[in-house]
Simulated scan of single mutants.
Amino acid sequence: MGHRRDHRQPYLDDSPLFLSGNLVPLTIIKGAGHEFIPLPNGENATTADFHSIRTKTESPAHFTSGFYKIEAGPQRPAHYTFEETKYVLNGQIDILDEATGITHHLVPGDFAFFHVGSKVKFSTKSNGLAFYAVTRPVRAPHPNLLGREEDNKAKL
């Protein structure tokens, strides 16, 4: 009888890297925090990308992660040409989904997924901070990460 794979579980021995014996070290960024992300002059929201790679999956794409910071002010429109996940860390982020007309009030612990073609308007009555991961290259590098990526040769 043939081997049945449970597609819900990852399989290390299916990985080309595992099969070839080439182990790849992790990328670690110490202090990739949100505390020192300034808003651009005259703006009430910004992104701060802190890591990006060109994936080595079946359909290579960029995979970038960072923080989204917003303060009270005008709505911030976005029309998605890439996928994105947002996870609210603190504050509140309101998202008007133009496809449905519904405004979602996201608070810490809430998650949103934006499909290619999603069109939204972000706002907040106070402030909000979210972690995101997107399938696009870096647009706005985190302003305070210079020198924080660890050397892969570092030993504990």
Rank of each mutant, 00 (worst) to 15 (best):
G2T: 06
R4T: 12
R4E: 14
R4S: 13
R5H: 11
R5I: 14
D6F: 01
Q9S: 08
Q9W: 01
Q9A: 11
Q9T: 14
D14H: 04
D14G: 05
P16W: 00
L17Q: 08
L17Y: 09
L23F: 12
L23K: 09
P25M: 01
T27Q: 10
T27S: 09
I29N: 06
G31T: 12
A32W: 12
E35H: 12
E35N: 09
I37H: 03
P40V: 04
G42M: 07
A45S: 10
A48I: 06
A48R: 02
F50D: 08
K56A: 15
K56M: 14
T57G: 15
S59V: 15
G66C: 04
G66T: 04
F67T: 06
Y68C: 07
A72M: 08
G73K: 00
Q75L: 05
Q75C: 09
R76H: 04
R76N: 10
Y80Q: 01
T81W: 00
K86N: 08
Y87G: 03
Y87C: 02
L89F: 05
N90M: 05
Q92M: 14
I93F: 12
I93K: 00
D97I: 07
D97Y: 13
E98T: 14
G101S: 01
G101F: 04
I102Q: 12
I102V: 15
T103N: 09
H104L: 09
H105D: 02
L106G: 03
P108W: 04
A112G: 14
F113Q: 08
V116G: 11
S118N: 15
K119S: 14
K121G: 03
S123E: 07
G128C: 06
L129A: 13
A130D: 12
Y132W: 11
A133W: 08
T135F: 01
R136T: 04
P137Y: 01
A140W: 08
P141I: 02
P141R: 00
H142P: 10
N144D: 13
L146Q: 13
E149D: 01
E150F: 05
E150N: 08
A154P: 01
A154T: 12
